[in-house]
């Protein structure tokens, strides 16, 4: 189906995008890969008067490492991120980049658009909570950096103000010997995950020195599962400890009832995925190569 008519503007720079978005009224929206927005516009779930295409802004798609951190431009596509040195260096990153949607959607969809959607089913915010990332924003009032777990405020609602856009993401380089896993369950590739879990672990022998756990599609926003982390941090990772962490994560979740499953079903999945995620992360910490991405067949 065709979207309803709209005006199209191509921004040549971040400043131009901010100015267009600030001055075109309530019906204006930024367009990146279009893999969320165009789907909504075609179904007429949303209508806009104007689209500001960010896609041609130069220098907004960089993927860089240095000074102990990684910096990713908002326009970097899922497909490019999956093939990038960041994915090679950080296994949890590769899991997510390869698990999002399907090949075609990954060619177009961007990390900035994914984060800006404020959709709890989107994988990047959940993954980025596990990596303790910052979202870099720029708007009429200047620049700011927001921790990713404060960026999504409610269902489809982010902290972005009028005319403000996401310019990039950054996160600290994981400590040496740290590793993670991002695991999800989905019906098929072109479907969003039913639930997903990110685990980033730092081990000290068999003890968990530090850990971050995040849950996707498990409530109205991506969830930072601090209760699960508290069960793990500083402990010897026995089966009992892992079971308690998975139970804690379930207690922190509040999944909705939708076509992907009942809350009870989703909580069973979360329980299993937390255990699986910890298992894979731990094997990777020990130097093992483990291939995972979202399971769907």
């Amino acid at each position: 189906m065709y979207p309803a008519p709209f005006n199209y503007h191509r921004a040549g720079s971040v400043a131009e995008a901010i100015s267009l978005l600030s001055n075109l009224g309530d019906g204006v929206r930024a367009l990146a890969g279009g893999q969320s927005l165009l789907v909504l516009l075609k179904a007429r779930f949303d209508t806009v008067t104007d689209l500001v295409d960010l896609g041609r802004i130069r220098g907004l798609d960089g993927i860089e490492a240095g000074n102990g951190e990684y910096r990713i431009g908002a326009l970097a596509t899922h497909a490019r991120l999956a093939r990038s040195p960041v994915a090679e260096a950080i296994p949890i990153f590769q899991d997510a980049a390869n698990g999002i949607a399907d090949n075609q959607v990954r060619s177009r969809g961007t990390i900035g658009g994914n984060v800006s959607s404020g959709d709890p089913s989107c994988d990047w915010p959940t993954l980025l909570i596990a990596l303790d990332a910052q979202v870099h924003c720029e708007g009429p009032d200047g620049k700011r950096a927001v921790p990713v777990n404060e960026f999504v405020e409610d269902l489809y609602l982010t902290v972005l103000g009028d005319g403000e856009i996401v310019t990039g993401i950054s996160f600290p380089a994981p400590e040496k010997g740290a590793a993670g896993a991002y695991v999800g369950f989905k019906r098929c590739a072109p479907a969003y995950p039913t639930t997903s879990v990110g685990v980033q672990l730092t081990m000290d022998g068999d003890d968990c020195k530090d850990v971050r756990v995040s849950l996707g599609s498990s409530g109205l926003t991506p969830i930072h599962a601090t209760g699960a982390e508290a069960e793990l941090r500083g402990k010897l990772l026995t089966d009992d400890v892992i079971v308690r962490a998975a139970d804690a994560a379930v207690a922190e979740s509040d999944p909705i009832d939708d076509q992907r499953g009942t809350p009870e079903f989703k909580q069973l999945l979360i329980n299993t995925l937390v255990k699986r995620g910890i298992g894979v992360a731990r094997r990777r910490c020990a130097g093992e190569q483990v291939e995972v991405s979202h399971e769907y067949y």
Binding site: Y8, L31, G34, Q35, L38, K42, A79, Q104, V105
Partner: peptide
């Protein structure tokens, strides 16, 4: 699905302008 600059894309979810 078509290839755009060598990459597979769903041409129903992209503007001609893009």
């Amino acid at each position: 699905t078509i290839l755009l600059d060598g990459e597979p894309v769903k041409s129903c979810t992209m503007l001609a302008a893009q």
